[in-house]
Computed example of a mutant assay.
Amino acid sequence: MNWFGFGFNGFGQIRPADATCKVNTPVLISDVCRSCVIRSDCRVRASWSSRAHVHRTDCGSHVCVSGFGFGSGSSEQMCGDTFPESRGCTDALISERHLTLNFTDRVECWEIQQPQNKLVWKREQDLSANTGQTAPLPLVPGGYVMPRSPFFRALCSELCAVSLALGTEHAVLLTSVGTVYSWGSGSHGQLGHGALTAQDEPQVVEALWGVPIQTVSAGSWHSASVSTGGDLYMWGWNESGQLGLPSRGLEEEKHRAKSGGNTEQTINKDEKNQADMFISIQAFPALVDVPNVSEISRVSCGSRHTAAVTGTGDLYTWGWGHYGQLGHCSESSTDEPTLVDYFPTHSMCVQDVVCGLWNTFVSAVPKHPPS
């Protein structure tokens, strides 16, 4: 399995920083850690300025970090610098200032301070009820971790959480029976409760009640979920078309481009009469149609863009594309889910996608591996 990246590269989190600030087509980033043999089950986590690559090897596991303050200065450092304190970790989260590491017996939060990192929080894990299955970060036994103080937040055990996605100011939780809860800021409809108010405690997303969900994601001000039947639901802010719904902002951009920047000619009377077709905020989950796709398997939300993997291993992206984070060989934005041609052109099947705020990381394998 190889990992690819595209989008914002201002700190070398995708490829060497001296190459370009924007990468608008997928580039390989995981012919990577040359000191060990990488197994296929590695994963990527991303923040705005950095990327953490969790490597599982035959001799253990560790995290390599690329981006602000870390390696990526040459093609020999495509994976970045090894974070020595991560040896033996099972999972990681990265933010602008902190790297959170999950081990079998503890969780640690390190303040990133080159060249010396500082342990700022640690919590021992109770292994007495260990079932052998661990939920991915930010979930930890008894609650979840945040990339800022207070680092640990408790969760009611009755929720039976299996995954949790953190947005800029909100959280979306998935339970073991496929029910979705959300809480935090609701200023852009990102909670999916039909209002624009904040919610301090987890509240069930009633519009999805009875629809078993298999995965959730949270962007800066929008959210997404995929049902067990492969249907994609999205809600929140749609300013850049990140919900895959008609965006007035993108329509106005098209008219400004056509009219040479004359804002008075941006939208004609007929289009103004049809203004209700544009969606700025979607406060309830909406079923999103991806053309020619019958099933979605995974979804990830960036700051203002979205990426989804289909059941057949194709990748579709939409939303804000200023840094090339949509992977369409351009910096254009779109409110229509669009196939990323790179992977079918290279006979590759996409298995996973992780959106950073302004970039996208994708794992893929050959469709027809050599026998």
Rank of each mutant, 00 (worst) to 15 (best):
V180Q: 07
N130C: 15
K122G: 03
F68L: 15
L166S: 07
G80A: 13
H322F: 05
L164Y: 11
G67M: 11
K118F: 13
G88W: 00
W221E: 10
F11K: 05
T82G: 01
Q113W: 14
T104D: 12
A52I: 03
D31C: 06
S330Y: 01
E264H: 14
G260L: 06
C89K: 12
F343M: 03
H255K: 11
E76M: 09
R256D: 13
A198F: 11
P136G: 04
P115S: 15
N102W: 11
V107A: 04
G189C: 09
V353S: 01
D270R: 04
G311H: 06
G142K: 09
S227C: 14
C79I: 08
P115V: 04
C89S: 11
E158V: 12
Q203V: 14
P337C: 06
F284N: 11
Q274V: 05
V354N: 00
P147F: 02
W48Q: 02
D270M: 04
A154L: 12
W235H: 01
Q77M: 13
D91S: 04
P366H: 10
L287S: 01
Q274R: 02
T360K: 01
Q190K: 08
L155E: 13
V299P: 13
R298P: 02
H322M: 12
H255P: 09
S61V: 00
E251S: 13
G5I: 08
D91R: 00
Y323D: 14
T228L: 09
W237S: 07
P115I: 06
N273A: 06
D276M: 04
G80N: 03
C329N: 05
G324N: 02
R87L: 15
G229T: 15
G194S: 03
P147V: 02
E253N: 10
S227W: 15
H346S: 00
P26R: 02
E111R: 11
E336L: 08
E251G: 04
G69L: 15
G311S: 12
Q282E: 09
W209S: 11
W3V: 00
R43L: 01
P202R: 15
D341A: 03
R97G: 06
S247W: 15
Y342C: 02
V205W: 02
A224G: 05
S95G: 08
G241N: 02
Q114H: 14
G67L: 07
P291C: 01
S223Q: 06
L166A: 07
P26D: 00
G192D: 00
Q351E: 09
T345A: 06
S187H: 14
Y342M: 00
E76R: 10
D200H: 10
H53T: 11
D81Y: 01
V65Q: 11
T197Y: 09
G194T: 06
E252R: 09
P291G: 03
K254I: 03
I38F: 06
V290P: 13
V290H: 05
G80I: 10
N9H: 07
R298I: 07
S30C: 07
C89M: 06
R34I: 10
R45G: 03
E239F: 02
S66G: 14
E201Q: 02
A154N: 05
F70Y: 14
G7P: 03
L99T: 08
D231L: 09
